[in-house]
């Protein structure tokens, strides 16, 4: 399968602290890639490097390259706002704006200049359908997004990300604040969305990675220890440190 993102020798420093150590890997198009590892291992730093969210953290230094298609996202002249549109992000806690359901989804397209009401309605409906939320909210699009359940809010946030037609979806523990049924819906949604998007998900839940990911990377102390097809990584990892982590013999 074609690679959507290629990461070459990526190191990230927060001041003196090195959070990532020369990570080289590729993210496949139209597939789910899961990143696992203990807290502080660098998986979230890796995720936030992909759309340069870590630029927002003071004293951050980045070495190496990240190619989205063939453009290095850290090269001068890259429009960071456009980069973050192309590489959408879903966070751990659903973070809808305190606006209506409609306005949440229409927010991005409006920012990017879409003002035709009929076109906006089309984009909102299509995005909510893709996020498997349309049937539940189609009769209350003007209601506050904050009235939705946690699981619905998270799907709304995904719809909001889809509305700006991203190239890649990043998800940082998107189900850890949800009940198991809502989490299961999000997992199914991720499995559907990978037909159209590459999805990179950070998760503390190994079983979740095993269920939904095609590829899995194991991070430890800022190092990408092992990156492999999910099936192989979870049944027969090659690196002893991966084995130790997966079987709870780590630490």
């Amino acid at each position: 399968m074609a690679d959507k993102i290629r990461v070459r020798g990526l190191s990230v420093y927060y001041g003196e602290l090195q959070a990532l150590r020369r990570v080289t890997t590729s993210i496949a198009d139209r597939a789910v890639t899961a990143l696992i590892g203990p807290s502080g291992c660098g998986k979230t730093t890796f995720l936030r490097s992909l759309n340069r969210l870590i630029d927002l953290i003071p004293n951050t230094r980045v070495e190496g390259q990240i190619f989205l298609d063939d453009v290095d996202v850290y090269s001068p002249g890259v429009d960071v706002v456009d980069l973050r549109r192309r590489v959408g992000m879903v966070f751990q806690t659903p973070n809808p704006f305190p606006k209506s359901i409609f306005d949440n989804v229409a927010y991005g397209p409006r920012i990017h200049g879409l003002s035709n009401q009929r076109r906006l309605e089309e984009v909102v409906e299509q995005s909510l359908r893709r996020a498997a939320l349309w049937d539940e909210v189609k009769d209350k699009l003007r209601h506050s997004a904050l009235d939705l359940s946690g699981g619905q809010q998270q799907r709304l946030v995904i719809a909001r990300a889809l509305a700006v037609e991203p190239d890649v979806l990043l998800m940082d523990e998107p189900t850890s604040a949800l009940d198991p049924i809502s989490a299961g819906r999000i997992e199914e949604l991720i499995t559907e969305l990978k037909a159209e998007y590459p999805i990179v998900i950070v998760t503390h839940n190994m079983q979740q990675a095993a269920r939904i990911a095609d590829w899995t990377g194991f991070f430890l102390h800022g190092e990408l220890v092992e990156f492999a097809e999910t099936e192989r990584l979870f049944t027969a990892p090659k690196e002893p440190r991966t084995e130790a982590y997966l079987t709870g013999r780590y630490g």
Partner: peptide, 9 residues
């Protein structure tokens, strides 16, 4: 327990 890796094997 959802065992993984060598435990699963």
């Amino acid at each position: 327990q959802q065992p993984m890796a060598s435990d699963l094997r």
